[in-house]
């Protein structure tokens, strides 16, 4: 089998697991998480970045080889997301941006309309835009038109660890959308990441499930392996599932009978 490359924003990656930097009891565990998971892309909330910090800056713990994916956590409108993205670039965080526009502090569900607006503006400004959205075909199509580099649909509400509640919608996105589909949010167990990859998702982003595990480093390793296993299963073309055992062709067998 030739090497499986994940291409996004003009760059090539061998890992299909994206990780995050939130909710850790101690940010100093982040380098070990990156290493054990094999992840090469990491998201960080710009609101937490403090380049002049006297008390430790999350950026100090992100290994140099990682592709940085700043996110717009805290943005409530397209305009705020655009402002945060520009700030991120001005602060030296690069051209990649994960758009999160959330104006619901209770369920943290993303606002698809505002996200699409921000995507369009930022893509025109040369950003590599990865928008976080609901698993909705129309939103996904509008993101393709807006110039997104990938679509990041949620598996279930962010931070809930509830798995792939949007399974059927994800399946449609995977089938219909030409951009990479990165399942983001809600993945609580490695088996769920594996399932998303088996379904044909291009990658998964996992933060809470790793950051809040008792042993984040071991959990990161488990997710790294699960994503790889799921990807390989997808590439190998699993046999079709049947509810009943099927031994012959009772309805069409006559066609081959002499």
């Amino acid at each position: 089998m030739s090497e499986d490359i994940f291409e996004i924003g003009g760059l090539k990656f061998s890992s299909r697991l994206l990780t995050g930097t939130g909710k850790y009891s101690d940010d100093s565990v982040i380098p070990a998480v990156c290493e054990s998971s094999g992840s090469q892309i990491i998201t960080v909330a710009l609101r937490r970045v403090d380049l002049e910090s006297k008390t430790g800056n999350v950026m100090d713990f992100i290994p140099k080889h990682m592709q940085l994916l700043p996110n717009t956590s805290g943005a409530r409108t397209a305009d705020e997301a655009v402002r945060i993205a520009r700030l991120a670039r001005a602060m030296g965080c690069g051209d990649w941006i994960k758009i999160e526009v959330i104006s619901d502090s209770k369920y943290l569900l993303p606002d698809g309309y505002e996200t699409a607006k921000a995507t369009e503006i930022l893509a025109k400004e040369g950003f590599v835009v990865l928008p976080y959205v609901n698993a909705d075909l129309y939103i996904a199509r509008s993101l393709v038109d807006a110039g997104a580099a990938a679509v990041m649909p949620l598996g279930s509400p962010i931070g809930t660890n509830r798995g792939l509640k949007t399974r059927e919608m994800l399946r449609i996105l995977i089938e219909e959308i030409s951009l990479p589909i990165i399942v983001d949010a809600g993945i609580g167990r490695p088996s769920e990441a594996c399932e998303a990859m088996e379904m044909g998702a291009d990658a998964c982003l996992v933060n809470t499930a790793i950051a809040t595990a008792c042993d984040p480093i071991m959990m990161a390793k488990a997710f790294g392996r699960a994503v790889k296993a799921g990807r390989e299963a997808y590439l190998s073309g699993p046999g079709a599932k049947h509810r009943n055992a099927i031994a012959s062709s009772p309805l069409t067998g006559f066609l081959s009978e002499g």
């Binding site: 609101r47 937490r48 970045v49 910090s53 008390t55 805290g74 945060i84 700030l87």
Partner: peptide, 10 residues
């Protein structure tokens, strides 16, 4: 983790 900064004025 003591969080010292969790907002960036925009």
């Amino acid at each position: 983790q003591p969080v010292f900064k969790d907002w960036e004025p925009i």
